[in-house]
Design a protein around this nucleic acid. Structure first.
Length: 274
DNA sequence: CGTAGCGCCTGCCGGC
DNA sequence: TGCCGGCAGGCGCTAC
């Protein structure tokens, strides 16, 4: 389940192999992802293009050429990896971008919640990239910002930090993790957030994401793999999926609730309901 | 305007 | 053993 750290790790892994490389052609095997892959557009515009940069906005991977930008979202189960040209096609390998040197950028996605889109020259012309909140690891995401957004909201603090218009890239797992570290109950009303908590929460969100990115960098050794397996790093999680297990701080059993259709984990002792 | 709920899709797990 | 229901999850869309 790629969250922001996995996406960032993917970007860092594929970037050195893609930049200055040239697209030969693209193959679309199953175009029905979250939205249809614009196969004709990609086949018309991508061949002969040199890749200028590979970057990330929220959980979208941006592969930039002078003709426009290929935008890839991994959804729930997507992976991107580099394989050599003779690597056999496996189930759910929906998209290939053939590069020079017999290298293929291959997209695999069993659940097809992901997306492959084309942005043209104007990135903002893509609706999915509009109205996104700040990057959690950027200066724009700070306590006063979060506080200003939280004040007028009815929703819970967990749902607030998972709202992409408030801040991008905080998925279900890292929401529970950062709230635990901040000692904030996930059901707390967002508008009760005080300045101290806002500071701590901004910091713990950054902390869990940075730690996971760092771990990804060391665990995920090679994106050019013969078996094409992406090798996502195993998470080290303190509350997520630890229902009934002792809290790492106080040994109280971790609780599990549903919040807005999402599994939510917390320690009832460390995270007091206000 | 904010908020809640839905649905896309497949793999996996537990129950029968 | 095999079948099947339920669940997981990011995130845009619709309805209120």
């Amino acid at each position: 389940m790629p969250e922001l750290p996995e996406v960032e790790t993917t970007v860092r892994g594929i970037r050195p192999h893609l930049v200055d490389n040239t697209v030969k052609h693209v193959v679309v095997r199953h175009k029905q992802l979250r939205w249809p892959i614009p196969a004709l557009t990609l086949q018309r515009l991508l061949p002969t293009q040199t890749i200028l940069n590979v970057s990330r906005r929220a959980k979208y991977i941006l592969i930039e050429t002078s003709a426009g930008t290929l935008v890839i979202h991994l959804g729930m189960s997507g992976t991107l990896c580099l394989v050599d040209a003779k690597t056999p096609v496996k189930k759910h390998d929906h998209f290939d971008c053939h590069l020079t040197d017999d290298l293929i950028l291959r997209y695999n996605d069993p659940r097809r919640f992901g997306a492959i889109l084309w942005a043209g020259h104007d990135l903002d012309s893509l609706a999915v990239l509009n109205h996104l909140g700040p990057e959690p690891l950027s200066k724009a995401f700070h306590a006063d910002y979060l506080l200003s957004k939280a004040h007028k909201r009815q929703t819970s603090i967990k749902q607030l930090i998972m709202d992409g218009k408030i801040v991008v890239g905080v998925g279900n797992i890292y929401a529970s993790e950062s709230l635990f570290l901040a000692k904030i109950h996930p059901l707390m009303s967002a508008k009760l957030l005080n300045k101290t908590q806002a500071k701590v929460l901004c910091e713990t969100i950054r902390q869990v994401l940075r730690a996971a990115i760092k771990k990804g960098g060391t665990t995920l050794k090679d994106f050019v793999q013969s078996d094409g397996k992406p090798g996502y790093f195993s998470q080290q999680l303190t509350v997520y999926d630890r229902q009934g297990l002792p809290c790492v701080q106080c040994k109280t059993p971790i609780e599990h609730i549903q919040l807005g259709q999402r599994a939510t984990y917390f320690c009832p002792t460390c995270q007091k309901y206000p």
